[in-house]
Amino acid sequence: MSSLEHVSRVRRLYKLIFRVHRALPPELRIMGDNYARDEFKRHKKCNPEEAKIFLNEWTDYAITLAKQMKPLQQVKKKKVGEYMDPQLLDHMTDEQIVQLYELHKAATESTDEDIHLPEKKK
């Protein structure tokens, strides 16, 4: 793949991810947009092998999320995301595991805050 084709593919995928994120609840959209932006910046100068894996994983993510955001799927399942195979952790670097933990912590904190909000008095 030529350099121009690669840049074009990355740009299309990047834009697609942000379009799919528009269907997310606001707090998830902000978190997802920030995470995607950081990841794409972080992998801007990675080697071709890492780039291939990176693009495949983000493409799978965009497809999965787009399917889940369809209105009919929202009515049926009322869920976003899917569980990760724990065996994938064996293939991650320490840095990736820490990053995954931080993402999990941020996601659960916003959920916990939503649940524990005091009720408004009438």
Rank of each mutant, 00 (worst) to 15 (best):
K76E: 07
R22L: 07
Y83A: 15
M1P: 08
E57M: 09
A36H: 10
K67Y: 13
Y35I: 06
I97P: 01
N56Y: 08
R22N: 08
K79V: 07
H104G: 09
T111Q: 07
E82S: 15
M92N: 02
T59Q: 15
L103D: 03
Q96R: 04
M69I: 01
Y61M: 10
T64W: 01
K52R: 15
S8F: 14
T111A: 09
P26M: 03
K67N: 14
R29L: 01
R19Q: 04
Q68I: 01
L65A: 08
K15G: 05
D114L: 11
S2R: 05
A51N: 14
K121G: 02
W58P: 12
K76D: 06
R29G: 01
N56M: 11
A51S: 14
P86F: 03
A66T: 02
R12N: 10
V10K: 13
R11A: 06
K121E: 08
D38R: 15
S3P: 00
K44D: 11
H91N: 10
R42V: 00
E95C: 04
L55D: 11
V75N: 00
A23C: 03
Q99I: 04
H104I: 08
K105T: 05
Q68L: 06
D85S: 03
D90S: 09
M69C: 14
L89P: 01
E50V: 06
S2G: 09
H104V: 05
N56Q: 13
N47P: 02
I30N: 05
G32R: 06
L117H: 08
Q87Y: 09
A66N: 08
Y61L: 14
P25K: 00
K78V: 02
L55N: 07
Y83S: 15
T59E: 15
T93G: 01
D60G: 12
